[in-house]
């Protein structure tokens, strides 16, 4: 099986330009088309270990980032395409890479209803998986990146995809999205972090993505059982602590952080109930990443690496 990194530069650019670059991302196959150098640079850096798929195979999500017309070209804007439609407003070229990643998230957020999808980061060790739901700014992505850099396997930075009626999470490993100061925090946290292009002045501020498939099993597609649910909250002025969270609260909060809890009706309720009854739930307030990683390790009985 060939990975993106095995392609020669010339072949890679040709495939990306013509839309024949197809990647396996968790259970889905994406094909990506773009003529923008910044997109090529980002994919080359962050997806180099992703397995290539024959473009003649079944493609789940066919996406494209390119100019929508002359007016956009003059405005230095570009456009995200999905199924040949333009679901979003035009974007400045400098933000194209961030939008590629967001667009790839969007495909799953909107369409894949075979799973109960929580808006959460998921990491795992041999002791089980941790689901970390969180609103933007809660520090879930930063903590997810840090755990990934300390030997945990990152299953997703965005979607915890639960197979209904089980506690099993389907891996969907893609780059971790870091915003504003988190970019430097992670760079200082580990010299191993590989970052893609930085998008300035997006509606979320400055955004860069980190290569997430750092583990030997990163591209293994088998579902893994969730054992913990941790609600992280980054807060510089509060005492760092980890506390047990009531199951009833956790249920409501996790449902609130779900993309399709209400869409799935009874099946959504039953799956969430099963999950919440099977995992231990905690609140984690932190501002120091080293402390947070150490605390998570202790909580689940995982050795500290490095």
């Amino acid at each position: 099986m060939q990975a993106v990194g095995n392609l020669t530069n010339k072949l890679f650019h040709k495939q990306l330009r013509t839309g024949s670059l197809a990647l396996q991302v968790g259970p889905y196959t994406y094909s990506i088309q773009s003529d923008l150098p910044i997109v090529a640079e980002g994919i080359r850096a962050l997806y180099r270990d992703f397995v290539l798929v024959d473009p003649q195979n079944f493609i789940d999500y066919k996406i494209s980032i390119r100019h929508g017309g002359l007016l956009q070209r003059l405005r230095r804007q570009t456009q995200f395409y999905f199924d040949g439609t333009r679901p979003f407003a035009p974007i400045p070229i400098g933000q194209a890479y961030a939008f590629l990643e967001w667009g790839m998230n969007w495909c799953v957020s909107l369409h894949a209803n075979e799973y109960l999808k929580l808006h959460a980061a998921v990491v795992s060790s041999e002791r089980g998986a941790i689901i970390m739901p969180g609103v933007p700014g809660s520090g879930k992505s930063t903590l997810c990146a840090a755990l990934g850099l300390r030997g945990w396997r990152i299953l997703s930075d965005e979607h915890a995809m639960l197979i209904p009626g089980t506690v099993n999470v389907v891996p969907l490993c893609r780059p971790v999205s870091l915003k504003n100061e988190s970019i430097e925090v992670i760079q200082q946290f580990s010299a191993e972090a590989i970052l893609g292009p930085t998008s300035q002045k997006t509606h979320k501020g400055r955004v860069a993505h980190m290569k997430a498939d750092l583990h030997a099993d990163s591209h293994n597609a088998s579902p893994l059982p969730a054992a913990w649910m941790i609600f992280p909250r980054f807060c510089p002025n509060e005492r760092q602590q980890v506390t047990l969270r009531r199951r009833s609260d956790s249920f409501i909060l996790a449902a609130y952080h779900s993309f399709n809890y209400s869409l799935l009706c009874e099946s959504g309720f039953e799956s969430m109930e099963k999950l919440i009854n099977s995992v231990a739930c905690f609140d984690l307030v932190y501002h120091d990443l080293n402390w947070a990683v150490h605390t998570v390790n202790q909580l689940v009985g995982h050795p500290d690496n490095e």
Partner: peptide, 23 residues
Amino acid sequence: RCFQDDSGAPLGLDNKTGKTANQ
């Protein structure tokens, strides 16, 4: 359409999940 374009505006609300696409 030409002069009041929403250039640089955030992604639209997705009407099926009520969440923004770019979380």
